[in-house]
Amino acid sequence: MVAEIPSHVVAHPHVLYVGTPAFLVGSTNPDGTANLAAASSSWALGDMLCLGIEADGQTALNLAERPGITVNYPSAPLWPALVRLSRLTGRSPVPAAKADRYTFEPDKFTAARLTPQASELVEAPRVAECLLQFEAAVRRMTPGLDGSYFMVEAEVVRVHADESIVQPGSGEIDPRAWHPLVYAFRHFFDRGDEVGWLPSSRIAPHPPVID
């Protein structure tokens, strides 16, 4: 059976978030308090993460001065927390470019109704409600072409996961049990059904069967 060829048209989306996991970045303010920000632009290669972080927020300032951060991955039920954070900034005074949309909030955890959890290797706190949490160290920050964001390269130094998503005995994350919150074109989704896997999977029951 031949698959039907899609009928493509020219589209004009106002954003290009095609569907990536949303995440929460924990960082440390100059006075030692915690900052928390929602984000959605990221990818990973080996132990390195590349995060897209807005340049005019408190998070970027914190990462440049205090490189120990946490990257916390919420599951679908936590989507309201990201909405609560979406118009808050930990930077005071609020940057002029954000003044019409953002409000200064020094206690982002309380505002988001989330719980700070002490990390083991970095100063920044984790988000207790997130089933998957990375402690990481910023290694490089590269300004984006238009100056509005940084490409932040961070090395993951420790992974924490709720035991419900860890495969017993191997320490591997069970992708069938883990449901990240997916952000696509400004909408939130739960992860869909499994459709296959790569030959390199360490926990698949057998090699993929494909035609």
Rank of each mutant, 00 (worst) to 15 (best):
E123L: 12
E123K: 14
A124T: 11
P125S: 13
R126L: 14
R126H: 12
R126D: 00
A128Y: 09
E129Q: 15
C130P: 02
L131N: 01
L131P: 05
L132V: 11
L132M: 08
Q133V: 02
Q133R: 14
Q133I: 07
E135W: 03
A136Y: 02
A136D: 09
A137Y: 05
A137L: 14
V138Y: 07
R139T: 13
R139F: 10
R140P: 00
R140V: 11
R140W: 12
R140T: 12
R140I: 11
T142V: 15
P143Y: 05
P143V: 07
L145P: 03
L145E: 13
L145R: 09
D146V: 07
G147Y: 10
G147P: 11
G147D: 09
S148W: 06
S148T: 12
S148H: 07
Y149G: 03
Y149R: 10
F150L: 08
E153Y: 11
A154W: 01
A154S: 03
E155D: 06
E155L: 09
V157P: 02
V157R: 02
V157A: 00
R158E: 06
A161L: 06
A161Q: 07
A161P: 09
D162M: 00
D162V: 03
D162Y: 03
E163N: 08
E163T: 05
E163V: 00
S164I: 01
S164M: 01
I165C: 06
V166P: 00
Q167N: 05
P168E: 08
P168D: 09
G169N: 07
G169E: 06
G171R: 07
G171S: 05
D174F: 08
P175S: 10
R176G: 14
R176N: 12
A177N: 03
A177E: 12
A177Q: 12
V182W: 06
V182C: 07
Y183A: 04
F185Q: 14
R186A: 12
R186F: 09
H187Y: 13
F188V: 04
F189Y: 15
F189V: 13
D190N: 15
D190A: 15
R191D: 14
R191S: 14
G192D: 15
G192R: 12
D193A: 14
